[in-house]
Amino acid sequence: MKILDVREMTKTFGGLTAVDGLGIEIETGQILGLIGPNGAGKSTAFNCIAGVFPPTGGEIYFNGEKINGVKPWTLCRKGLERTFQIVKPFASKSVLYNVMVGAFAVTDKTAEAEAEALAVLKSLHFESRKDVRAGNLTIADRKRLEIARALATRPKILLLDEVMAGLRPAEVDEMVAIIKELRDRGITIFVIEHIMRAIMALSDRIVVIHFGRKIAEGTPDAVASDENVIKAYLGEEYVVS
């Protein structure tokens, strides 16, 4: 079953078309990777789907329900959750506090939210840092906190916007393992990523966009050998013919 179905989505800012007739389908339980050169419109596409701003044209369906222009907080309660490329921790608060904010999306009681948050932290092997102030975390831990917070809202689909940017190779491997584990728990994953090694290892399918348009789609291997993709990333002259 398709959990997310984006049809002909377009987003323009004044005269600039950032996303141009983009179509994306994600099956429940899949990991879908979205890649593309800088400025290709990946984050804009994410923002449209996550309700930050409505798309200019096209339709977005989540579990068969049209969600064009639905606000982020409503989407969160429906089970569509996202993380941010530039991490946004509640810096003056503890890790536990941060995750509890997410957990309050599924409960009204403080004690339940705390239990839920602790369970999430434990599942990410993060509970030893629960009393650390979020502002004092390393970048890898901040990324992990983004995921922990999002998980606490019990999402059905998780939109991860470059959760591996800025991580060391060992940390990237750890993050890949975490994301695979989330999928095994039944959460559908939609991920934007620049680190090719990670996205190739992770994704079931990959969509490549360039100038807001989809230029390729398929398994990681198929996409990696696609002529259009190599052109987009490296330029015309690097295509081996």
Binding site: K71, W73, C76, E81, K88, P89, F90, A91, M100, V101
Partner: peptide, 23 residues
């Protein structure tokens, strides 16, 4: 309470708070 957490979160990082289900 939930309201207190929501207020603090919204005051510190409104975008993140919205994504976490807070109006």
């Amino acid at each position: 309470s939930k309201l207190g957490y929501a207020l603090n979160a919204g005051g510190e990082e409104p975008e993140a708070a919205m994504a976490l289900g807070i109006d």
